[in-house]
């Protein structure tokens, strides 16, 4: 569904992404992991067209996304830091997002209800806590029932109860029609939510494959340990 071919991106002297090749397929759920500053967010932003790559190809369903924007109809995005215009009310934002996406969508308001966002629809964003904004951001990502969901550290800042709601929502939505791309630093969470893993380090891909394969090849039962083992076994080699 999304293919990444030879992607390069530099910020000044820093190589954020370096010769990256990746395939994201429909019906699968991907964990994108790596240490801080490894290029996870840059990769996601590149896919969304927010970051313009220096080199390489990015395709969504076979067509290049460079200078295109229609493909974003298929993407629901939850950014790492949920920020909204301060003076906007929650309700106004929801109305605005609906207004900005004309056409026919199946509106999925499950999270709006679960998080009881209707109760705060008259509140302006600057009065909201980070967690509450995160809830709005999550609800927004699922609102238009997109086939591709990109969630950048979705549970960071959410209270445990809200985390559970979000997790079960993700589990429920993992159908053969949908593609999930999730970054997180919590391995146990990723183990629950994803089936595939892409490991980035300093902008380079260190591992890509299914979590099952990784576990069996490293003989570890936990994802976190499996990755550590994988890194020790092939410290320099880059897999494609």
């Amino acid at each position: 569904m999304i293919t990444v071919r030879g992607l390069y991106k530099k910020f000044g002297k820093l190589e954020a992404l370096s010769n990256l090749y990746l395939d994201f397929e429909k019906g699968k759920s991907y964990a994108v992991i790596g240490p801080n500053g490894s290029g996870k967010t840059t990769l996601i932003k590149s896919i969304l067209g927010l970051v313009i790559p220096d080199e390489g190809q990015l395709q969504c369903e076979g067509t290049s996304i460079l200078n295109h924007w229609h493909y974003r109809e298929k993407i629901g995005y939850m950014p790492q830091f949920a920020t909204f215009p301060n003076h906007l009310k929650v309700g106004q934002l929801m109305e605005m997002m609906k207004d900005l996406r004309p056409g026919h969508y199946v509106l999925d308001e499950e999270l709006i209800q679960a998080y009881q966002l209707a109760d705060i629809s008259n509140k302006r964003f600057y009065t909201l806590s980070g967690g509450t904004r995160q809830k709005v951001s999550a609800a927004l990502a699922f609102l238009f029932s997109p086939p591709i969901l990109i969630l950048d550290e979705p549970t960071a800042g959410l209270d445990p109860y809200a985390v559970e709601i979000l997790k079960s929502k993700i589990q429920n939505e993992r159908t053969s029609e949908k593609l999930f791309m999730i970054t997180s630093h919590i391995m146990s969470e990723l183990e629950e939510l994803t089936s595939e893993v892409a490991y980035l380090d300093s902008g380079k891909l260190r591992y890509a494959g299914s979590i099952e394969d990784l576990k069996s090849s490293t003989r570890e039962s936990r994802l976190g340990k499996a990755i550590v083992a994988m890194l020790q076994r092939q410290p320099e080699k880059t897999t494609v």
Binding site: L50, P79, P85, M97
Partner: peptide
């Protein structure tokens, strides 16, 4: 933030 929000939507840059 607003611009980022808009750009992550299906809207032309």
């Amino acid at each position: 933030e607003f611009i980022e929000l808009l750009l992550s939507q299906p809207i032309n840059r």
